[in-house]
């Protein structure tokens, strides 16, 4: 967390890129200088008294020069306010926060598995993996064709719950047969999405003996380890809980109980 800053950042643009899904771009050379894939930022949606009290956490979706990109679903008060930000307005950002994906581990193929807006951290990860010359296969699952986001991803396999595009079913059902029929060399899974999906995937990874890292969501107040508000149960001895914001949001599935 060495590069953490708190600053007012200028919004470059905020556009609806899929159903209720927004791409927010803002400038911060400090954040782009130190951010690693998997880290997040904690954003104040509005000034004091004009919106919700607490910051909202979002994965860093991509960095592009001095620009930080976030992908988010407008689902509640905070994200609706953010979705109305326009070019030239400012947002108060705290970040980059948390631990990153461990990309330097020993594997040949990176298997990215995302459910819905869980795709958010993966454009950034993909850029990093490409630099490391890893083979990448990306599996994304959405409710329907209207929600699909695939920019800056590699070798994309799509599943939709309603079958309106790609495989008809959930992303884990799409992913499992691929594992069986493809020669991947040594593989590592990187995943983000709803807890039920991560749970199914973590069991699959265990059965197939593949290393699996997930990005978790948790209700947060501070995002930096001050409030102890974001516990996730961990395996093994030692303390019972880890903090999603500080020890995560990236965890090996063998280290936590989903």
């Amino acid at each position: 967390m060495c590069g953490m800053v708190q600053q007012l950042c200028k919004v470059e643009s905020c556009d609806e890129v899929a159903a209720k899904t927004f791409l927010l771009r803002f400038a911060s050379s400090e954040i782009t200088a130190s951010a690693q894939p998997g880290q997040f930022v904690n954003v104040l949606a509005a000034e004091a008294g004009e919106g919700p009290l607490l910051r909202r956490p979002f994965s860093i979706a991509r960095v592009d020069g001095d620009i930080v990109e976030l992908f988010f679903h407008a689902i509640g008060t905070g994200t609706l306010l953010l979705s109305r930000k326009r070019h030239g307005e400012t947002i108060d950002v705290l970040g980059p926060l948390g631990q990153s994906f461990r990309v330097d581990a020993d594997y040949d193929t990176a298997l990215i598995v995302a459910g819905g807006i869980g795709v958010a951290p993966f454009p950034f990860l993909t850029a990093d993996l490409l630099k490391r010359c890893k083979r990448i296969e990306t599996f994304v699952g959405y409710r329907n064709a209207g929600q699909i986001l695939t920019s800056h991803l590699q070798n994309i396999h799509i599943a939709t719950d309603d079958g309106s595009k790609g495989f008809h079913g959930n992303v884990v059902q799409l992913f499992e047969p691929f594992l069986d029929r493809t020669d991947l060399g040594k593989a590592k899974i990187f995943a983000c999405g709803p807890t039920v999906m991560l749970k199914a995937l973590s069991e699959l990874a265990k059965r197939k003996n593949i290393c699996c890292e997930v990005s978790l969501e948790g209700h947060m107040a501070c995002g930096v380890g001050l409030c102890q508000g974001c516990p996730v149960e961990r395996t093994g001895d030692g303390s019972k809980y880890a903090l999603v914001c500080k020890d995560g949001p990236i965890f090996l599935t063998t280290d936590i109980i989903l």
Partner: peptide, 14 residues
């Protein structure tokens, strides 16, 4: 260890 999640809920101005 503290309590299990969920430990935080945002409410009106608090």
């Amino acid at each position: 260890a503290g309590n299990p999640p969920q430990r935080i809920v945002e409410t009106a101005s608090g």
